[in-house]
């Protein structure tokens, strides 16, 4: 979690407004790690993420006068990182992953619409994932292997907690499309975790 306790936010704000070199250094030192964490949910390529982080930090410094001092600075910074990540991906994403990769994770139904195989139940507590690095690695890999079109809505919804309406507006999608993509992304992640946890779909 973000550790904002180690820095005096007001001092940082005043320093950034005055464009003090020390404040800029403090910004980099205290906020690079959490911002890097946010950005790496959108791209797993560290050099791409560094480029996005660089641009995010520059925007934070340049836009600091627009920040309302009565609110918390972390959500404001995070929003810049999220928007920057989305813009960057939109501009730079290259070959799309094939659609069949998503289809493989869809549940299989019989002709009359019943689930075709036994579904084993499992439930994982978020705390368990934090403590189990192999499991958190599986989760991270599952999200990262989603095609961009599915990964971004899922990250915005399930990680960042944006509403369907906010995501649709941010990504210029119809709400129904946003929902379908999030749903299919969840089915994909569920499938990967199921394979890991009990070796079955």
């Amino acid at each position: 979690m973000m550790n904002a306790n180690s820095i005096d936010t007001q001092e940082l704000l005043d320093g950034l407004k005055a464009q003090s070199a020390l404040a800029v250094d403090n910004l980099v030192h205290h906020y690079s790690r959490p911002l890097f964490g946010v950005i790496l949910n959108y791209t797993k390529n560290p050099s791409d993420a560094e480029e996005i982080l660089q641009d995010t930090l520059l925007k934070i410094v340049r836009k600091i006068d627009t920040f309302r001092a009565e609110s918390d600075i972390w959500p404001w910074m995070k929003r810049i990182a999220v928007n920057n990540s989305i813009m960057w991906l939109r501009k730079h994403r290259t070959a799309r992953q094939v659609e069949t990769q998503m289809d493989d994770s869809l549940p299989q139904f019989s002709r009359d619409g019943e689930l075709q195989y036994p579904v084993f139940g499992w439930s994982v507590d978020p705390e368990e994932v934090i403590l189990n690095s192999e499991l958190s690695g599986q989760l991270y890999e599952a999200i990262q292997s989603l095609p961009y079109e599915y990964r971004v809505p899922l990250v915005l919804r399930d990680i960042e907690g944006y509403s369907i309406k906010q995501i649709s507006s941010l990504l210029a999608l119809k709400e129904a499309t946003t929902k379908t993509r999030i749903h299919r992304a969840r089915l994909f992640v569920r499938n990967k975790l199921s394979n890991y946890l009990d070796g079955t779909p």
């Binding site: 995070k78 499992w122 439930s123 399930d158």
Partner: peptide, 18 residues
């Protein structure tokens, strides 16, 4: 259950420091 759990555990990636 598994769909819900998959969605809920994803929140662990929120505000992670790297």
């Amino acid at each position: 259950e598994t769909y819900k759990s998959s969605s809920e555990v994803t929140t662990v990636l929120r505000d992670q420091e790297v």
